[in-house]
C-alpha cells in the first residue's frame, strides 16, 4: 500500500492547562477530499496547524507524505487557505503573487500568475491594491495565492467564512476542480451541506477528539448532524 498523504497518530496538543486535541488518529490517502466537521473551539484549527507543521504536537506524531511536516519539501507541497488572507493590503494582486512566486521559486511565474488570476476572475483588478478589494475578492485572491505553486495537499480552514453566495459558488467549483486534478484536500467546516457536496470522507471532531470517521456517500447530512449532537451531549465519551 502506498504511503498516505497524511498520517496523524495519537496527536494531543495542549497550551498549558488548555487542551486543544486529545489522541487524534486518522490518515488521508493521496487524492482524497476529507472534511473535518465540528463546532467552534472543537480543535479543528489546531489540528490543521499541527498538520501544517506550524505547531508541534504535545504528544503523537504527524507524517506528511511519509516525512516530517516541517520539512522544506513538504512545505512546498502544502497550501493553507483560511479566513486569514496571507496577503498584503498595501500591495496589488500581482505584487502579492510575485512575492509568493519568488518565495516558492516558481519558474514560470508570470504565466502562473496570469492563470490563477484568470481562474478566480480577478484579471481585471490585478493592478489594484488588495486593500481596496471586497471580502469575496480578497478570498478569491487568497485561493489564487494558495494554488500558485500547485500544491499536492490543500488545507482549508473554514474558507467559506464571510463569503457571499457567488464567492462560495466559485470556491466550490474551484475545489471540485482541484479534486478532479487529484489533489489531496482537508477541509474544516461546520457547514454540513457544503462538506457533503465536496467530500469523499468526513471526520467529526468533538471535545478535541475524533468521534466519527465515515464515508460521505454512505451518510446523509442529517445522520452526521445526529452524530455531532450526540457526541456533544455525551460529555465527549463517545
Amino acid at each position: 500500500m502506498s504511503v498516505p498523504a497524511l498520517d496523524v497518530s495519537g496527536v494531543s496538543k495542549d497550551f498549558g492547562r488548555i487542551i486543544a486535541l486529545r489522541g487524534v488518529t486518522f490518515s488521508v490517502q493521496a487524492g482524497e477530499f476529507v472534511s473535518i466537521l465540528g463546532r467552534n473551539g472543537a480543535g479543528k484549527t489546531t489540528l490543521l496547524n499541527v498538520v501544517s507543521g506550524i505547531s508541534r504536537p504535545s504528544e503523537g506524531s504527524v507524517r506528511l507524505f511519509g516525512t516530517d511536516p516541517g520539512d522544506r519539501e513538504n512545505k512546498a507541497k502544502l497550501a493553507v487557505i483560511s479566513h486569514e488572507m496571507f496577503l498584503y493590503g498595501n500591495l496589488t494582486a500581482v505584487e502579492n503573487l510575485q512575492y509568493y512566486s519568488r518565495v516558492y521559486n516558481i519558474s514560470d511565474a508570470a504565466a502562473r500568475i496570469d492563470a490563477v488570476l484568470q481562474n478566480v476572475e480577478l484579471t481585471h483588478r490585478r493592478f489594484d491594491l488588495v486593500a481596496t478589494y471586497s471580502r469575496g475578492m480578497t478570498q478569491r485572491l487568497t485561493i489564487a495565492r494558495a494554488l500558485l505553486h500547485q500544491p499536492s495537499l490543500l488545507l482549508l480552514d473554514e474558507p467559506f467564512t464571510g463569503l457571499d453566495q457567488h464567492a462560495i459558488g466559485m470556491l466550490i467549483t474551484l475545489l471540485l476542480k482541484q479534486k478532479e486534478m487529484g489533489r489531496t484536500i482537508l477541509l474544516t467546516t461546520h457547514d454540513l451541506h457544503t462538506a457533503a457536496e465536496l467530500s469523499d470522507r468526513y471526520l467529526v471532531i468533538s471535545k478535541h477528539k475524533i468521534v466519527r470517521d465515515g464515508i460521505m456517500s454512505d451518510t446523509t447530512p442529517d445522520q452526521i448532524r445526529e452524530t455531532f449532537f450526540s457526541s456533544e451531549a455525551g460529555d465527549g465519551n463517545s
Partner: peptide, 15 residues
C-alpha cells in the same frame, strides 16, 4: 501580523 502573514511565513518552504 496583519492578515496572518506571520503564519504564511511559518508555512514557507524556507529556513
Amino acid at each position: 501580523k496583519e492578515n496572518g502573514n506571520l503564519r504564511a511565513m511559518a508555512l514557507m518552504p524556507v529556513d
